[in-house]
């Protein structure tokens, strides 16, 4: 890990009218680090993720990103063109529902190739070869390349969404409940895959989940949110094995043991 954070989040708050979305959240994300944001439904996890990834404009606060040219830029002071370019090259966003992140009416190959074409790749053969390569890396058979995502199972769609995001070699990936809605065995396979990819590519990731098992498997560090506030943060193993806050203790002890 290098000695400069990839992302500096300072005092992010988001209000929906008088209601709190999230309040005064600050943290640094380091290169290669996976941060999990956990908490119950309505605790502000997704609001926070959307604020950091510039999909929502926060009421207060700033998010600075370490650009490839070694400078820090405030994401909300960038032009929209720069921000959108950053989002489709250096970042990835994996939605809970694959239909939100995929183009359901075009083939898997075109889904993976879209980002390449967006940054100016104009050679069909190369785009297709890259797409085949990425489909194999996320364990989708190469002969499914011309099928539309609607012909894919839920797990395959989610893996296709991940391939689509990683094809430009991003440095930061946001994931919103990546395993939500998948059955347990498919979840396990997906988690395994994500963990491998994050390790191989040295990705940083921010993962929102309500599933503590997902956080345990994937993340180095975690933040626990309740009612819009971050009530506890620390190394994942520390938080899960030795929770300090009463709410975190409750959360950890509420996991069903089979």
């Amino acid at each position: 890990m290098s000695d400069t954070p990839l992302l500096k989040v300072k005092d992010i708050s988001k209000f929906y009218g008088s209601r709190i979305g999230c309040r005064d959240v600050s943290f640094d994300l380091w290169p290669g680090e996976v941060l999990a944001i956990v908490g119950e439904s309505g605790s502000g996890k997704t609001t926070l993720l959307n604020c950091i990834s510039t999909r929502l404009l926060p009421t207060t606060g700033s998010v600075e990103y370490h650009m490839r040219d070694e400078t820090y830029r405030d994401l909300f002071r960038m032009s929209e063109a720069e921000r959108r370019f950053l989002m489709r090259t250096d970042w990835g966003f994996v939605h809970q529902n694959p239909a939100d992140g995929l183009r359901m009416t075009v083939s898997a190959g075109a889904n993976v190739g879209e980002r390449l074409m967006a940054i100016g790749n104009r050679h069909y053969g190369n785009i297709r070869n890259t797409a085949i390569d990425w489909l194999e890396r996320v364990e989708i058979d190469a002969d499914r390349i011309d099928d539309q995502p609607r012909a894919f199972s839920g797990g395959m769609r989610q893996r296709l969404q991940i391939a689509r995001n990683l094809v430009t070699g991003p440095r930061l990936v946001f994931m919103d409940e990546p395993t939500g809605g998948l059955d347990v065995s498919v979840q396990a396979r997906l988690l395994d895959l994500v963990r491998g990819l994050v390790n191989d590519l040295g990705l940083s990731a921010i993962i929102v989940t309500h599933d503590l098992a997902v956080a345990r498997l994937l993340s180095h560090r975690m933040m626990v949110m309740k009612d819009g506030y971050v009530i506890e943060q620390g190394l994942t193993d520390r938080v899960l094995d030795d929770p300090r806050e009463p709410y975190t203790q409750l959360l950890v002890s509420s996991i069903l043991q089979v």
């Binding site: 929209e80 959108r84 075009v106 083939s107 190739g113 879209e114 074409m117 069909y124 011309d146």
Partner: peptide, 22 residues
């Protein structure tokens, strides 16, 4: 409209890609 404004035309090639793939 935003895509025109920001000159984001990758999607147009997605259509042509689909044509060739099919």
């Amino acid at each position: 409209r935003k895509m025109h404004a920001l000159e984001e035309y990758g999607l147009m090639h997605v259509k042509l890609y689909e044509d060739i793939a099919r």
